[in-house]
């Protein structure tokens, strides 16, 4: 999977960055190491305008209807959704756990906020992920610098505002370094 940049079409509304949609699904019945995780990850579309985004997104299965152990990632062009990528190595992510049935609305609000540059943290945001699991769904937003508390606080506050989360929603921040050590995303 190599990243190739795209241009906004004539008359379309450009985005601040190029983004890629990635999809990954864990094969049933076995644990994944880092290389097999990467191998199961596919770029399914690249976009640099609002219209290009909708053309891809409108053809995707809604997050509420995804099954199995699957993830959809939207990352800036050139950044792989992997802890080890150089943009992510010193970063981390906010994690929001959602009861079943809520994820499609929250996921759409999260990516619209990211594409529309609502987080106001410069180049800090790397991408966003929706993770479909057996008992709950999880959305997360990744940023470059886990130790920049002003940045991570601003991301959390924006996340709360744009997701309009139910009361008692649990949010947690996890550094990718911690994830690398315990080999677990959540």
């Amino acid at each position: 999977c190599t990243f190739e940049d795209v241009e906004p079409g004539a008359g379309e509304h450009p985005l601040q960055y190029t983004y890629c949609f990635w999809y990954s699904k864990k094969p049933p019945g076995r644990n994944q190491d880092a290389s097999s995780f990467e191998k199961n990850m596919k770029i399914i579309g690249t976009f640099r305008s609002v219209e290009q985004f909708w053309r891809i997104y409108s053809h995707m299965i809604r997050a509420n209807d995804l099954t199995g152990h699957s993830d959809v990632h939207v990352f800036k062009g050139g950044i792989k959704p992997l802890w080890e990528d150089k943009a992510n190595r010193l970063g981390g992510k906010w994690i929001v756990r959602l009861r079943k049935g809520l994820v499609a609305r929250c996921w759409e609000n999260l990516i619209l906020a990211m594409l529309g540059e609502q987080f106001m943290v410069g180049d800090e945001v790397c991408g966003a992920v929706v993770s479909i699991r057996f008992q709950e769904d999880i959305i997360s937003i990744w940023n470059r610098s886990a130790n920049e508390s002003q940045v991570t606080s601003r991301i959390r506050d924006t996340l709360c505002r744009v997701l309009n989360l139910p009361p008692n929603t649990v949010m947690e921040y996890k550094t990718h370094n911690e994830s690398l050590k315990d080999r677990s995303s959540f």
Binding site: G9, G11, H13, E51, W54, L112, L115, G116, E117
Partner: peptide, 21 residues
């Protein structure tokens, strides 16, 4: 530099444009 900012309602409005389909 200048950043390209869009709010949610503008992005949703673009969805119904013929170019987005």
């Amino acid at each position: 530099g200048t950043r390209i900012i869009y709010d949610r309602s503008f992005l949703l409005k673009c969805r119904s444009s013929p170019m987005a389909n």
